[in-house]
């Protein structure tokens, strides 16, 4: 009787390993998908946290899923994101929730950049075609614009990864000495003000 209950409790605990007081979420666009990273205070990742993605304008639920062992969740950019923007919500259980908003223009900006680059790249092909016609070997060895774009974005993402981590830490700061000392000052100050008024009332 007791052992199954204990086992069930341990299983539940394994599913929710952390009970900090705040859950952090940070999401960004990476190629054609959105990457979300969720953590508790002190950087411990949210395992098996439930992620729900909504359209920011009308609140329609678009998709949902669970974070992996590093607190990451990745999903392809939904069609609606370009007009509506996204609201990504993490529920880590026990009343710990947080959300991250992504504006519609983040997605449309990327799209116009991609088509703009495509347009710019598609005008030189005139020369390329010419070169191909004249049979220059260099023309055949150059990668297509799409390939170049893919390679560049891959390299960019790997070199940006540490920056993303730093940025995530900046977006969700841990309380530091400034906040602690400030809070203590407030409490003592409030008591001081009350005592001051008390002393004025007493002759």
């Amino acid at each position: 009787m007791k052992i199954p209950v204990l086992a069930a409790a341990l299983l539940l605990l394994a599913a929710f390993p952390s009970f900090a007081h705040r859950v952090n979420i940070y999401a960004w666009l990476e190629g054609d998908s959105v990457q979300a990273r969720c953590s508790f205070n002190r950087g411990s990742p949210v395992r098996n946290g439930r992620i729900t993605v909504y359209a920011a304008t009308d609140g329609r639920e678009l998709l949902n899923g669970l974070t992996d062992d590093e607190g990451n969740f990745r999903f392809p950019v939904p069609e609606q994101a370009k007009e509506n923007g996204l609201r990504i919500r993490i529920n880590a259980g026990e009343g710990h929730e947080n959300e991250w908003r992504m504006e519609a223009r983040e997605f449309s900006a990327r799209e116009t950049a991609a088509t703009g680059a495509g347009g710019a790249a598609s005008s030189p092909p005139g020369d390329g075609d010419l070169a191909a016609e004249t049979g220059t070997p260099a023309a055949r060895e150059t990668a297509s614009p799409q390939e170049v774009r893919r390679i560049v974005s891959e390299v960019m993402e790997t070199s940006l990864a540490p920056l993303r981590r730093e940025l995530a830490a900046l977006v969700n700061p841990e309380p530091g000495p400034r906040e602690i000392v400030g809070g203590l000052g407030w409490l003592v100050g409030l008591a001081g003000i009350a005592l001051y008024f008390r002393s004025r009332r007493k002759p």
């Binding site: 009970f19 002190r42 602690i180 809070g183 409490l187 003592v188 008591a191 009350a194």
Partner: peptide, 25 residues
């Protein structure tokens, strides 16, 4: 009043003291 303020301060700071024992933080 000062006792109340000091204990309020203890509560305020106490939430920063993580206990690493057991399954969670």
């Amino acid at each position: 009043l000062m006792t109340v303020a000091l204990l309020s301060a203890a509560f305020f700071v106490g939430s920063l003291v993580h206990i690493p024992i057991g399954p969670g933080s």
